[in-house]
């Protein structure tokens, strides 16, 4: 029987949904025993909740680990894997996950695959390659397997009625030569594009930084009427113009997203932008140029000036909510 360890990443004091999706993969596709691991300063407070998702939960809480230092995190994970005879390590393919996954793989002599969007079996994974222009179906040949699953690609696990056993372990606190000098935190409550159900993206067509405020208004009303997670995205042209931070950029040199709905507003649809969003379930484009390439991949399009279309959409959604 397979044994899987899932890293439960904590962000803003909560276990990320993306990690619960990884637990879902372990439960529904790999099967066998599913263990979880929480590492970091103060994670003990989450153990009761987290234990409801797994058969056994390892908790490694230390004031020293006030940041996801990759080396001690990976060493702690590798030790648990060796001691418990674990064959699979699952993690969500976030920045933290993609950093830790191959390090763990190197320590336990495993194959590491990241950005996994599908699994045909416990041995065969599916992931986008060549800038999302193809999906590779890959058979993993090593005994130990490290799989980083792309957020939003799998259904999250549901909490069970009973909690798994909680095992406190001594963390490895050697920070691997890394020192945190300064962290400028994101605006609170801002959702990352890779984790959103709906992404509202703006491009050069916005004409200036102030127009992102309009998109934020649209995000607020969409959040209210859908109850879903809605995030702000951008094209590289908007990022390069300095209108918005690079963390919002979608595309080949930005983030890859596949939300339920992707709004491309004032974005032409350059191939490098499409590389980051073409696997979205529904693409809705708003562009004044009927020839813009974005309309070729869009499921729905409105040809018009965003300065009229977006405010009208905000108004209509507000009315819709009232009724």
């Amino acid at each position: 029987m397979a044994k899987t360890l899932v890293f439960l990443e904590v962000l803003d004091g909560e276990v990320r949904t993306a990690s619960l999706e990884a637990v879902g993969v372990a439960r529904n596709i790999i099967g066998g025993e599913v263990y979880g691991i929480l590492i970091g300063k103060g994670v003990s407070s989450l153990k009761d909740e987290a234990a409801r998702y797994v058969d056994k939960l390892f908790v490694s809480d230390s004031d020293e680990l006030d940041y996801p230092y990759p080396v001690p995190f990976a060493k702690t994970i590798a030790e648990v894997m060796e001691k418990e005879g674990i064959d699979y390590f699952l993690i969500s393919s976030t920045v933290v996950g993609r950093e830790i996954a191959p390090l763990v793989a190197g320590l336990v002599d495993a194959i590491s695959v990241e950005e996994v969007t599908g699994m045909e079996s416990a041995e065969v994974i599916v992931k986008p390659v060549v800038s999302n222009k193809a999906f590779a179906h890959i058979k993993l040949l090593k005994d130990k397997k490290v799989i980083a699953v792309k957020p939003k690609a799998f259904a999250p696990a549901q909490a069970g009625d009973s909690a798994g056993e909680v095992v406190e372990i001594t963390p490895n606190t050697d920070r691997g030569g890394l020192t945190v000098k300064h962290i400028k935190e994101k605006e609170k409550g801002e959702i990352d594009v890779t984790e959103a159900d709906i992404v509202v993206s703006g491009g050069r067509g916005l004409g200036g930084p102030e127009k992102f405020q309009l998109l934020r208004e649209l995000i607020d009303v969409l959040t209210q009427v859908t109850g879903l997670k809605v995030a702000l995205g951008a094209s590289r042209a908007a990022v390069d113009a300095g209108w918005i931070d690079h963390s919002h950029q979608v595309g080949q040199t930005g983030k890859t997203v596949s939300p339920q709905i992707y709004f491309a507003i004032g974005i032409s649809g350059a191939i490098q932008h499409l590389a980051g969003m073409r696997t979205s379930k529904y693409i809705i484009a708003i562009n004044k140029d009927p020839e813009a390439p974005i309309f070729k991949v869009a499921d729905y399009g409105i040809v018009g000036d965003l300065n009229q279309v977006v405010p009208e959409l905000i108004e209509k959604l507000k009315q819709y909510k009232k009724n």
């Binding site: 993609r98 996954a101 191959p102 390090l103 763990v104 190197g106 590491s112 990241e114």
Partner: peptide, 11 residues
């Protein structure tokens, strides 16, 4: 689409 080289080499 592999993010693995850095982590492998570190290990």
């Amino acid at each position: 689409n592999s993010y693995a080289i850095g982590g492998y080499l570190a290990a």
